[in-house]
């Protein structure tokens, strides 16, 4: 058997811009070798689920009910795009602000129902949600929980541990001591090399605090995750793509499905990018579209966005993961 296989690439998560939000792919990259099968078996025995290839998508900030020109069209388009993929993702993660808040009696619940009706058309095995402040900031998450259940939870999928974190229901941008204690307990059963995907609404680091693009106890959350070598954080809230590497963790933001915010490094004020009626989905969903000359067909150009488990992240996690002593 070849001994110099790049074991760091044994299991890899990559994100692709495929038209809406982001699509992430997880696959064992040693192929079908006997060694790969044995490693997968051992990893499965450790984490509870044998890693096998799968994809998942992140969608964010639909703001159903927001009085804007795009309405729910971007959300509906996202659902249609995912349903039209030749290989549908196993999971879709919504990272908050499913709805735009209102205090008109019954109206917020109606908006939540409309979101659920549209997103319910997704033809995927599982859809997961976390709230944004527009979903849960005024009522402490009561309406969200009545529709979608708990605002923080975790689950395993094919060898990857997913954690939903709520940093909006306390009205201030914080996770809170109680949820951090739950997180510490949740993480405690995993080995340091377990692939972990955290999905939440606000950034867990100081991206632009004076635009409220931060979580006040984000450092404490990331300290809990620091011992884990393969951590990816997916979030929304900022209505634009963003990627930061902080320590072991990769932080990715998805675009909004309603309106876009500008580059915080270039603008002093947080004002939505003006709607372009000639390009209604600009900055909202389709990241790159190639229109073939003379054809009405649109082709989405795929761009790899490497996540925490690739060698490009610099992590040595999978080298360590594959050391026999860790099993």
């Amino acid at each position: 058997m070849k001994k110099d296989l790049d074991r760091r690439r044994f299991l890899k998560i990559a994100g692709t811009s495929m038209g809406v939000g982001a699509l992430y792919t997880v696959w064992p990259s040693l192929g079908r070798s006997a060694e790969a099968a044995e490693l997968a078996r051992r990893l499965g025995a450790k984490t509870g689920e044998k890693p096998t290839p799968f994809t998942f998508a992140q969608l964010s900030d639909a703001h159903v009910g927001f009085d804007g020109p795009i309405g729910t069209r971007a959300l509906e388009r996202a659902v249609a795009t995912i349903n039209g993929l030749p290989r549908r993702p196993d999971l879709v993660l919504f990272t908050g602000d499913l709805t735009h808040d209102t205090e008109k009696p019954g109206e917020h619940a109606a908006r939540m129902s409309l979101f659920r009706e549209i997103s319910g058309r997704l033809q995927v095995a599982k859809v997961y949600h976390v709230p944004g402040e527009h979903d849960a900031g005024l009522d402490g998450g009561e309406l969200f929980r009545s529709v979608f259940g708990p605002t923080s939870y975790s689950f395993d999928h094919r060898g990857v541990h997913f954690i939903a974190l709520d940093n909006v229901s306390r009205a201030k941008p914080e996770v809170g001591a109680e949820q951090r204690a739950w997180l510490a307990k949740d993480l405690s059963r995993f080995h340091a090399t377990t692939p972990i995907v955290v999905f939440t609404h606000r950034p867990l680091f100081d991206l632009r605090p004076d635009w409220e693009w931060f979580t006040s106890d984000g450092d404490e959350v990331m300290n809990l995750l620091a011992p884990y070598e393969n951590v990816t954080v997916l979030y929304g809230h900022i209505h634009r793509e963003d990627h930061h590497t902080i320590g072991h963790a990769q932080h990715f933001a998805a675009r909004s499905l309603c309106f876009a915010f500008p580059d915080p490094d270039k603008f002093e004020d947080k004002k939505a990018i003006p709607f372009d009626k000639d390009q209604p989905f600009k900055n909202l969903g389709l990241r790159v579209i190639d229109r073939t000359a003379g054809s009405a067909a649109e082709t989405v150009r795929v761009q790899d966005v490497e996540l925490a488990m690739s060698e490009l992240s610099g992590t040595e996690g999978f080298d360590q993961l594959l050391k026999p002593a860790t099993f």
Partner: peptide
């Protein structure tokens, strides 16, 4: 010159309260 914001969500116009 420092921007002060409301960081306790207070409704639909909260994002512009500064």
């Amino acid at each position: 010159t420092y921007r002060a914001i409301c960081d306790h969500f207070c409704g639909a116009g909260h994002g512009g309260m500064k």
